[in-house]
Amino acid sequence: MELKQLHKYVYLYFEGQATLEQETILMDYFSQPVVDIKLAQFKPYFEIIASERKQTFKGQLPMKPSSKNNWRRAVAIAAVAVFGFFMTQRNNTQAIQPTAEELVFEEFKAHMYFVSQKLNKGHEGLAHMETFNQTTNRFIKTD
């Protein structure tokens, strides 16, 4: 770019009348290590601009769970609660209406209890027999 043109852009720049394109041309020009001696006095300002443009935000984004996420969370909790409730209900229903195998087992258990009662009666009879034998032995001496 012609030096005369650059001088004009610098003038416009410091009057606040330069366009964004003209300002970009000036930025490019002043980024060079060596500039025209008459323009060198303005170089520090363009160096500041170039350095400031490089600054970036290094902090953490303070994102919080959105209301949408809260809504999703509430739905998930409700779903788990409903599932748990249905599972409990299902287990209760199963307890009221036993399966065929359970019915057979219960019937077998009742029969076994009946047999056990009868056997206990027989055992009691045997106990009486033992007492009778002891009393008999007291009176009848076999030796």
């Binding site: 410091f14 009057e15 606040g16 009348q17």
Partner: peptide
Amino acid sequence: LSRARKKIK
């Protein structure tokens, strides 16, 4: 902008 740049100049 004009005032600020004039001051800087």
